[in-house]
Simulated scan of single mutants.
Amino acid sequence: MYLRRLYLAASELHPGVLAALLACHMALSWLLLAWAGEADLLTPSAFLYWYGTTASTVGYGDLSPKSGAGRLIVAFFVMPGAIALFTTAIARGFAGLSDRWRRRRMGLGDYRRMSGHIVLVGYDAERTPRMIDEIVADGQGQEIVLLATQPLVATATTYRFVHAAQLTAPADLTRAGVPDAGRVVVYGPSDSDTLAATLAVTALNRSGHVVCFLRDRDTARLLAAHCPQVEVVMTPMVELVIKALSDPGSSRLIAQLASHTDDGGTLYATTAAVAESFDAAAARLRRAGAVLVASCGAGVDCPIFDPDATIAVGDRLFYIARTRIAA
C-alpha cells in the first residue's frame, strides 16, 4: 500500500516529492562542488544565490565554478537537474492557479473561511443583478457570494459564485460561507423553495441577519413562527401598490429611498451610541446632513415615528441621507 502511494505521488510529481527531489539535488550539488574545491560557492548564502540564478537560467556570472572538474559537474549535473526542477515547479504552480481559477469560474470554489460577507441564496435573472448592484452601490465593501442551482459562469468581478445541487444542501451552503456570513438574502423560484432554503440557512447561521422574499402571507406567518429572527419581505408589496393609488408618486419616492443607485436620499439605519431625546438625536443627525425619521427600541419589531420618544443606547435609528453616515 505504502509503495503504491509513493509511486502515485512520484508519478504525479506531488509537491512533497518535488520538494524532496529539489533538496536532494541541492545537497548533492553542494557535495560535488565541495569535492571539486569550489570554495567560493560553498557558503550558504553564496550557494543558494548561485543555485537560484542557475536554475532560473538568469546566470549573472558573478559567481561561477573555477576548476575544470567544477565546470563539468555544473554542466552535466547541476544545470540539467536544477533547470528541470525549476521549470517543473513553475509549471505546477501555474497549473494550480489555473485550476483554482477554473473551479471558481464554474462555481466550485470554497469560501467557508470568509466571514462577515453577504450570501445571496437563489438566483433570479431580473432581481438578483439589481440586488448585487444595490449592495455594491451601498459602499460598505462587503464581499458577495452568490449561491445558485443554475449553471452560471462567474465572469463578474463584484461577486463570487457557488454552484449548488440544491438551495438546501448543507455542504454547498457551507462552501458559500453561510455559517459565518454577516447577511444572507434568500430568494428561491417559489415560496416553498424559499422557505426550505431559509430553514437550512438559519440552521447554519445563528448570528447573521437573514432576509427572505416571500409572496404568500401564510408562508410568511409559518416562517415567522419558526424563525422569528428572519426578516420577511413580501413581494409584490400590496401596501406599496395601495399607497401609490392614494398618494400618486409615493411609490417612486419609496423606491428611491430603498435604492443606493439613485441620486436622491436613501434610507439607512444605525445604532444609537448615547441616550438622548428624539429631538436631540434628530439635531445630531441633521448636523451630519441626515434626517431622522424613526427609531426602534430593543425587542420591538417595527420602527416608530414618535418625536416625544426617548432614545436609549442600542436603539435603531432610521434616517435619510445621500450617503451612509459613519457611526
Rank of each mutant, 00 (worst) to 15 (best):
V136P: 05
A197Y: 06
T149R: 08
V211S: 02
L167Q: 04
L223Q: 06
L214D: 04
Q142C: 03
L253W: 13
L152E: 01
K243G: 13
Q166L: 15
S246Y: 10
N205W: 11
A196P: 04
A137V: 01
H209E: 15
L214S: 05
I132T: 10
F213E: 12
T261R: 14
T128A: 14
E143G: 09
A203M: 06
L240E: 07
M131F: 13
D218R: 03
T155E: 15
F213A: 12
I135N: 05
L257R: 06
H260I: 05
C227L: 12
P189Q: 15
D193N: 04
D124M: 01
T157K: 15
H226F: 15
A181Q: 06
P248M: 07
A171P: 05
G141I: 03
A171S: 08
D216E: 07
Q166S: 14
T219M: 11
L146R: 01
H260S: 14
I242S: 09
A125D: 15
L253V: 12
T270P: 02
P228Y: 05
P129E: 02
A165Q: 09
A255R: 13
L195E: 08
L152H: 12
R127H: 14
V186F: 00
Q229V: 01
E143N: 14
T157D: 12
D216F: 01
G208T: 08
E126N: 13
M131S: 12
P189N: 14
N205D: 09
P170C: 06
T194L: 03
I132M: 11
T266H: 09
A181R: 12
L152S: 07
R175E: 04
A181H: 06
I135V: 15
A258E: 14
L214K: 03
Q256K: 01
H209Y: 01
A258H: 13
A220M: 09
G264F: 00
P170T: 02
E239W: 08
D191A: 01
C227F: 01
G249S: 07
G208S: 12
P151S: 12
V145L: 03
P179R: 04
